[in-house]
Design a protein around this nucleic acid. Structure first.
Lengths: 235, 235, 235, 235
DNA sequence: GATGAATGAGAATTCATTCAT
DNA sequence: GATGAATGAATTCTCATTCAT
């Protein structure tokens, strides 16, 4: 009751430091509890701050999450660049990007969930800095593809955007069960598989021209189907 | 206040009928408001039922959504089978599946959101009937791939599961902005692109560059669309 | 769907039989779940009856419990009489009554709880048949006391009612923890102790007259205290 | 509707003060309405607080009742000690304890009901502070008995625990009808009777019958009442 | 700059009982 | 006599955010 309490009281930290403490606490709590379950009161307590005080530095809970994720992205981006600079060759660089993304999901499933299920679904997401950071995040991959095209290694008749969607969508779907807490996956193996599939495609190529029906045959088949259609439209 | 009683009173319907009415109302409200904003009271009102009565047939709000989505899936599955039976050839069938999925997202963005952002994220999702229905939904695609492999048209050294993740993940990412209410997309175009990318892959293949503007391929795509039209005349 | 279902349908039983089945089901469910947790729907299901049908035989849930307890009491009373007829001597008969009561609590804790915490607390309890049955139940004990008085074995200057309250109140308090699910007790031992205490009292008797201060001394003490009181009333 | 704002707005009180106001309001409402009928909203209104604000200080309705009863017990215990210190002699002190308990039941039937029918029946009762307070409450009685034994006035072959159960069980049974709102009772008279029965027992004792209308005993009882009066002038 | 008391709005859920069929 | 669909009323509890001190 009397004397100096164990809890620092109104201790003044620089704004910078205060913000950092709150964000660290917020990241921890968001990670452990998810967005809805995370309580401002708990974040405040861990940051040694009073609840209402958080509002001095952040607009609201949502904003706090945005800032936490932004911060996380920035760290990742710097990291990526550093590592990518040592890797050469289209396939290897692509593989790295995909592997690194898989690794991130593997190591920080909770933060990824926060990104996938909350941030990204909020109505103003696309005006967020996180959106921009995410584009930046995936742009590296597209750069690699672009360079591969220029080098003549990759096809130039494919919408770049779709390549990105395919890679990141594939990773996301592939890791969905893991994020739900069911089972595990091996980032190395999955990365290899994805690169292989994305680059090589599903169709057979080597023997392709010989095996597949020639043009005349394919045209005939198509016409046959058209005839069938016109004959029995509701069959 | 005035006029003939607007609310029919105690009209007794069979369980079956009542369930159908509630589900119809629920689907509409969920679609319009999303999960959180959807009020049981509004659903009840539209279904001409007292709130508490919903609980005779559904465990809770969550269960109600699950049932609504289940019902939707069942309709879709039957529809798919019917239409798919008229389409032939690996590429065409694959194209149909992807196009149909894109079309669904395009036509029912709200229900898709419900599925993506709620149902699928709930902890017990994998024990849900919806989960099974979803596997059933994607199994058709895998069957086509499997048949393609058996026919020697597709590579047999690719993990099937990854193909599925790539296709559905790609669609989901590609349509994300649309689901968020930003912009639009053309199911036909996107389907063609995805099929092309999934089958052909990103890498250039020696034999391929010669055929480039492949007349047969273009004709095949055209026929696929015709088939689709006859199968699904209101698309 | 067709044919005779496994669930008898509208099978007509005599009113008597139907009532018995419902009461048996109700007793079981009340015992297992307690009053509040017991659901009419479960009782109905166990009794192979439809919910609304219970109301043909019982006024309401409360009435159902009353009837169940009544029935239980009646069985017990008959049992008591039969056994008591073979026991002789005031102490032995008293001991039996107390032991039997303890045994009942021990064997049917749930039904006792129902009686103690519900029936007995309801506002119209004293107009219930159960109330009368309970008086009947305790009257046997008072009869024994009365006979003991007439035989000159027991004091005749004690309010009978208080004796009853003391015996049954003591048992109830003594078994409270057990009813709450904490620990156990031995009906035989506790019965002996209670009889001993009730009959013998707490004060020493044998040496009593010698040890205790004689009248003069006691009067002196009393006067001393009175003086103290008047001298320092607020000390 | 008219006049100066009847509801003070956002007036800030210290935690301590606010808690006290809420508890006072809660005690009143619980007393008047019983547990189930008591509405948080009414408590809030009387405490001049918004409903949700109660939850800053109390976990839930149940906790609120617990705290109210605790508070009540604490007041009583302090009171008991103060009064008991002026009363001397085993019989007189025992008489006081019993009389005081009866008086409490008589004066605060509602709070007693709350204790008997709610608090005490909740599953975690024995881990409650109230449970401990109640033991403390009855421990005084046992101390008196213990001292009587040491002074050679009381038998040393009786389980103390049973004495306590007998006294408090007897009081509870004796006052049951009153608590139910039927009839009344006289704490003085009942206390005398109980003390007499507990000390003397039911059986006749040779030496006893001679002293029967024991003048000293009557005087002692009278003094005990006088002491009580001076200790508790408003009784 | 810090504190933490006060706010506020409502939404899901329960199940005994009734009564149309 | 049986059925089971429909009723309905009311309450607890949550926690981000604000703002008086």
């Amino acid at each position: 009751m009397a004397g100096t309490g164990t809890r620092r009281k109104g201790l003044r930290l620089s704004r910078e430091r205060r913000v950092a403490e709150i964000m660290a606490a917020a990241r921890a709590v968001f990670r452990e509890k998810g967005y809805d379950e995370a309580l401002l009161s708990e974040i405040a307590e861990r940051a040694q701050v009073v609840e209402g005080n958080i509002y001095r530095y952040f607009d609201n809970k949502r904003d706090l999450l945005v800032k936490v994720i932004e911060d996380w992205y920035e760290t990742m981006l710097a990291d990526y660049d550093q590592q990518l600079s040592r890797i050469h060759g289209t396939r290897a660089r692509l593989n790295f990007m995909i592997w690194r993304h898989l690794k991130t999901v593997h190591d920080e499933p909770s933060l990824c969930q926060l990104m996938f299920l909350h941030l990204r679904t909020w109505p103003d997401y696309s005006s967020t800095a996180v959106h921009e950071l995410n584009r930046e995040y995936t742009r590296r991959t597209l750069d690699i593809v672009r360079e591969g095209i220029e080098a003549g290694e990759l096809r130039d008749d494919v919408p770049l955007r779709l390549v990105r969607d395919m890679i990141y969508g594939c990773v996301e779907h592939r890791t969905w069960a893991y994020l739900r807490g069911e089972g595990d996956f091996d980032p190395d193996k999955v990365a290899d598989d994805i690169v292989d599939l994305v680059l090589g495609g599903l169709a057979r190529h080597g023997a392709r021209s010989e095996e597949r029906p020639d043009i005349a045959e394919r045209l005939e088949n198509a016409v046959a189907r058209l005839e069938r259609l016109s004959a029995h439209p509701d069959s």
